[in-house]
């Protein structure tokens, strides 16, 4: 999504109405794994949330110019990778093996075998991740998450099908959203 992206792709910035901000706050709390106090640290109540509209229906939400979340159409909210690295437990974790890192950092979608091989990791059946859900992508032998993805299959399906795209990459380490520190 952000393989090619620059500040010029942003068509306009606007401060959101406080009622909209309130509903976004609630959505963020329900979609991600954190509590109101933690969100308060990232996005203090006093600070206004700025919506940056970009090409292809991408909306980026910034606080004091720093991109924190983004969204495609009305889809789920994603944290930016920098935020995710500060709070790795925001999203459910999946892990790819070492061989996949190279492709992940080139922006490729993650295939199922990368998760099911020895270096990969998926949650067990009772904590399975449904499909179309935002996930944090970790890599074998690394401490920090290196990508944010959207599951195309549920984690159980990934295990059983074990073929083709399992998780679509939304943003990854080194893409243009990563290099964009201020907007």
């Amino acid at each position: 999504m952000f393989k090619k992206f620059s500040a010029a792709d942003a068509s306009g910035q606007s401060i959101l109405k406080s009622s909209v901000q309130r509903s976004i706050r609630a959505t963020l709390l329900s979609q991600m794994n954190w509590d109101a106090e933690t969100l308060e640290l990232v996005w203090p109540k006093k600070e206004a949330l700025v919506l940056v509209k970009c090409r292809d229906h991408i909306s980026i939400y910034t606080v004091q110019g720093e991109p924190l979340f983004f969204q495609h159409f009305d889809g789920p909210f994603f944290p930016t990778l920098r935020l995710l690295q500060k709070y790795p437990s925001l999203l459910p974790k999946v892990q790819v093996d070492r061989g996949a890192i190279r492709f992940l950092l080139a922006g490729a979608h993650m295939m199922c075998p990368g998760f099911t091989s020895k270096g990969g990791w998926l949650p067990d059946a009772d904590a399975a991740i449904p499909k179309e859900k935002a996930v944090a992508i970790f890599a074998e032998g690394k401490d920090h998450p290196c990508g944010v993805g959207l599951t195309k299959l549920s984690s159980e399906e990934i295990k059983s099908v074990n073929k083709g795209v399992g998780v679509e990459i939304v943003t990854y380490l080194g893409d243009d959203l990563w290099s964009l520190k201020k907007l």
């Binding site: 509590d35 106090e37 690295q85 500060k86 709070y87 920090h144």
Partner: peptide, 15 residues
């Protein structure tokens, strides 16, 4: 951990 977080929120990891 959750109780601690209730009071002041989880500090971000330094990266």
């Amino acid at each position: 951990v959750v109780e601690e977080a209730k009071k002041e929120g989880v500090k971000p990891l330094e990266v």
